[in-house]
Design a protein around this nucleic acid. Sequence first.
DNA 1: TTAATTTTGTTGCTATACTAATAATTAATA
DNA 2: TATTAATTATTAGTATAGCAACAAAATTAA
Lengths: 144, 144
Amino acid sequence: MQEAEKYSRYSFLLDKTARRVKQYAKQRFRELGWTITIDQWAVLKQLYDKGELNQRELASNTFKDHPTMTRIIDLLKTKELIERKPHPGDRRSFMIALTTGGKTMVEECLPEVQKIRMKAWDNLSEKDFQEFKRILESIHQNLS
Amino acid sequence: MQEAEKYSRYSFLLDKTARRVKQYAKQRFRELGWTITIDQWAVLKQLYDKGELNQRELASNTFKDHPTMTRIIDLLKTKELIERKPHPGDRRSFMIALTTGGKTMVEECLPEVQKIRMKAWDNLSEKDFQEFKRILESIHQNLS
DNA sequence: TTAATTTTGTTGCTATACTAATAATTAATA
DNA sequence: TATTAATTATTAGTATAGCAACAAAATTAA
């Protein structure tokens, strides 16, 4: 393999694998009859773990841009899993909070989500995890 | 960190990094004034390396689904970088071929694309590449 | 050879991703 | 204070990404 081409191939493999992981999760969500997507799940989980956040914080934590977050929030609101509450000190902003239904949903889905996530890591060791994490963070760093 | 949560975090990191790599390439393409996307590039490069292919083969090689490939091909055709030629032995199928303009474009862009791709891998060693490749392939395998 | 099945590609629908432009509000500064 | 700049969120437009349903053609089976 040509040296210069190698990097393209690794980039492609990264993209391909990330897509597969996402697709697998999507497929499992469907099979479980869940009405949310993986990206919507990530927002619900954030709110479950950290409490009320505004859209900027949610976008920042999930590394999504603001328009994308607006739309995810809209969809979750339609499903009555979250609510937009006025921000006490800033009229531009909303505090996003889980509804009771949203909280219940997170608690019910969490174990299954963890199973879905673990599936990807079969036959990989703790050391692999550490290496993988280090390399991904290095790549992300290089492009920031 | 809880053990079960760890896997979700690695999945997130994988997704986040893959998005960053794609976003970086997209941004550089724009800065260079190129009118194609990264995914369109991948198709052009395939055709450049392997000659004429049908849409099924292109989709399979890039791990994209058929509808997505149809749309990418449509856009590349509009830009007159590729052409759909009738398949000699199968009237359902097209042979997709680079136009002269498409071939020129690949040759002009290739060095810069390689630079863009290499940027991600600064400060990573040959051993890192091998580990990374092994782990990604293992993950992909686990979900197939 | 007819009928059933598979393959190839398209269209429609929903959701993310990114850019640009905009509105409303808040913060900074002259 | 008045003006300017920055922040928060939205809307619009384009491009993947995936699923389902479909049409046309080719292949297989009866």
